[in-house]
Nucleic acid binder design. Sequence first.
DNA 1: ATAAAAATGGATCAGCAACTCCAGAAAAGA
DNA 2: TCTTTTCTGGAGTTGCTGATCCATTTTTAT
Lengths: 206, 206
Amino acid sequence: MSTQAVKLTSKGAATRRRIVEAAADLMFVHGVAGTTLDQVRDHAGVSSSQIYHYFADKDALVRAVIDFQNDAVVSEQESAFAQLDSVAALRSWRDEVVAHQRRVQCQGGCPIAALGSQLGELDHDARSGVAAGFHRWQAAIRQGFDAMLDNGTLPAGTDVDALSTAMLASLQGGLLLCQMHRSTAPLEAAMSTMIDHVELLATPAR
Amino acid sequence: MSTQAVKLTSKGAATRRRIVEAAADLMFVHGVAGTTLDQVRDHAGVSSSQIYHYFADKDALVRAVIDFQNDAVVSEQESAFAQLDSVAALRSWRDEVVAHQRRVQCQGGCPIAALGSQLGELDHDARSGVAAGFHRWQAAIRQGFDAMLDNGTLPAGTDVDALSTAMLASLQGGLLLCQMHRSTAPLEAAMSTMIDHVELLATPAR
DNA sequence: ATAAAAATGGATCAGCAACTCCAGAAAAGA
DNA sequence: TCTTTTCTGGAGTTGCTGATCCATTTTTAT
């Protein structure tokens, strides 16, 4: 909505996207404040004026980066989440998340969370953009719990909204501890414990 | 260890502390990069040269701020955590955390986590400092679970290490969502769900 | 073909923020 | 007391970074 109503050539759209991707890459590694527009210019292979041709200022670029990361992180898994309709499926999802963190040596954490923490109290547009990404993510996780309600894995009346929120929180907190400690152990502990809880809820006999 | 071995007058120590506190305040609100040393100078009521008299550079000041926040956040509750030896005690602790966030209108999140997210991949000293704070925090939470093992609330063999790590992750993730959404609901969901799990573990009949 | 709009290159500016310097005041030690 | 160390004040300097400007090329539309 905010982004310009100016016409974009296919070529123009391509350079715009290159700029956003370059900015997203750099900001993930060096942080928002630690990324200069000159770095973005070089990394994207454009000239200084291009950036200001497509974005009003650095804040506008940052907002575009948030949208980009929301899409990159959530949409990738969005379809897969609907299939998370059993405890075993949750566990293999956890294994994938942990394996990915191991691959990147526990660096960077969650791109959305990183942007949120850095801009939370500075740029309210950025904050609500991050909130929107989290909301979308939580809704995706919730799909799986809804399915578990349908197939009888979870007993009727289970608060799947709270459960999906708690699951996302565990994931985010686990990722933060994983990043700080440079170890996947806390991430595994956080996600496994939450999944164990789902399993206990799913166990009818009590 | 890193901080200078230079002698500090009681007056000097006071000034040094004022600088760190001012920096901690400002960085909590405006972020590390968003806080200038001129702001710190004014807020602490010192002159520019003072800051460089007590700290080598901005990074050194940031590291002192991390130590300060570690102490402020963790040590305050450290003793209280040992008393968290029942599910009811955990719930009232959760209520306090939620009430505090409501008081500050869900702004700022966790000071330690904020510093960690902002500096995670930039300053490795800072990152390990934050990791130390989290470790200390987790150990404090663990005390309560150890007590619950002793008093028989939790069955023997419970992995209290994983449990306390998961609890801290839920708290951190909940605080992040709380800050982004400007609502305590996600924080309540995250902590309550984790406490519910402890309650289920504590329920012997299954 | 030709005018209009969009895209690009690169030099340049202006402000700010980290950091320095030095002189002088206060305090400690002998 | 007097010498040495620590503490303080504030004016400077330097480099970087976000932002601007304008000329030129490329594309689109009629």
